[in-house]
Design a protein around this nucleic acid. Structure first.
Lengths: 237, 237
DNA sequence: TAGTGGTCTAGACCACTAG
DNA sequence: TAGTGGTCTAGACCACTAC
């Protein structure tokens, strides 16, 4: 966090969150900010673009940077967030139950999803996520064994992302994901407390490392009444 | 489209789509590109950042810009897209049926959603979307009448976004949206061909103009088997 | 070590908004 | 017309990757 533009970004976020600027206000001009933070205008613009991308402000040419109502949504489980991060945020009663952790030679379908060759083995991990005593999410992970060689049950119980990033020192960068609704399977029935639901929300993600290798495919199956997704879409023409 | 960085962006997109670079290749270096396009490196970087944001490449420090597999998803109904744009893209048999178009004084709930005062009237528009003869989406729009004064049934049948952008000259900029699954209502039952489904996927959007005014709130209710959402999430720490 | 992308600067000109 | 953000430049130094 020593990058100048990140420091400025965080300063401004904090000011907005503390109510120093409220919805409808305009921030000081880029010129003014560059003097206040004793930096160049391009660096200020980098910070402001970050604010804009994250929904804090909208830049209007000839007018200024208008502060938006950032609290319209209060529970942003958007982007790429691990179950552990969510549970840390919410402080409710969370638990992970691990069903399976083993490696297998990938079949054709999985090989094409993970762009890997015949001799690469794949970890298959299956976990239920309990919130307040109810199993509402079933996570099925497929991870390339040549990139993440060791996964144990206890790692899967804590956080695989934690292990990959902190212990292995790999850098998870981003994910492409698809959200659809599907009928429940036998597997869903046995690992989830479905009540009367006959459908689940399925999030399929392809996860990449910072060096652009695709190393994981995940299917996350959610009981529909507990599912929420928040998105922030800029219009591109 | 006269901006230099946009021209470069589009050139590169086209090259990738035509297979001049395939998944795993690295693009020419920024230095090289800046010579090829006779421009500065910062301008090249702007174009490359666009490519990265849209999932075409991933930039790796010390290595280069790695081309990604952009065809993992083939049907990107992501971002802020109007029904008309989707139907234009797909060339299937689409139809819009307008149920209601009228103005009303906003109640408290709607006023807080649209950030407007007591005396502002709100358009309420309700439309079903048919694909291949089945009504699978119910769109309920709430639009500030002080910003969009005239909406007719025939405008609602074509495209309200078209009307707002092309006829009124307003500039729709972005939306915050939330996706949840909810039980069907009586309204859903009467306006949608639900088959046996007892739940719908609900997308609630807040839509802003380029000058940062919030002018529309939309509830788009989809039959779950026809719903798909594609997202591209970069990890921010 | 050579080459890559990441950050930062100090300036220029343009397009747009507001009074 | 004065002030705003948008684009673009030509250079500098740094952090990282690969060889």
């Amino acid at each position: 966090m020593k990058n100048k533009y990140l420091v400025i970004y965080n300063d401004l976020v904090q000011m907005i969150q503390q109510g120093e600027f409220v919805s409808g206000d305009t921030l000081p001009s880029e010129h003014e900010l560059s003097q206040q933070f004793s930096t160049s205008r391009e660096t200020i613009r980098k910070a402001l673009n970050l604010l804009s991308q994250n929904g804090y402000i909208q830049k209007v040419r000839g007018k200024g940077s208008v502060v938006l109502d950032h609290n319209k949504f209060e529970f942003p489980v958007s982007g790429l967030t691990s179950f552990k991060e969510i549970s840390d945020q919410l402080g409710q009663d969370f638990k992970t139950v691990v069903h399976e952790v083993f490696t297998e030679t990938a079949n054709n379908q999985l090989r094409s999803k993970l762009n890997c060759s015949k001799d690469v083995k794949i970890w298959k991990i299956s976990r239920s996520r309990e919130i307040n005593g109810e199993r509402i999410i079933l996570d099925k992970d497929f991870i390339r064994e040549d990139i993440v060689p060791d996964i144990t049950k206890s790692i899967a119980e804590r956080s695989i992302y934690d292990y990959i990033e902190n212990d292995l020192g790999l850098d998870i960068s981003f994910a492409k994901k698809e959200i659809v609704v599907e009928s429940v399977t036998e597997e869903d029935r046995s690992y989830l407390d479905l009540r009367d639901h006959s459908q689940v929300v399925v999030i399929r993600s392809y996860v990449y490392l910072a060096d652009a290798t695709l190393f994981q495919f995940t299917e996350s199956r959610h009981r529909p009444d507990k599912f929420q997704f928040v998105d922030f879409a800029r219009r591109t023409k």
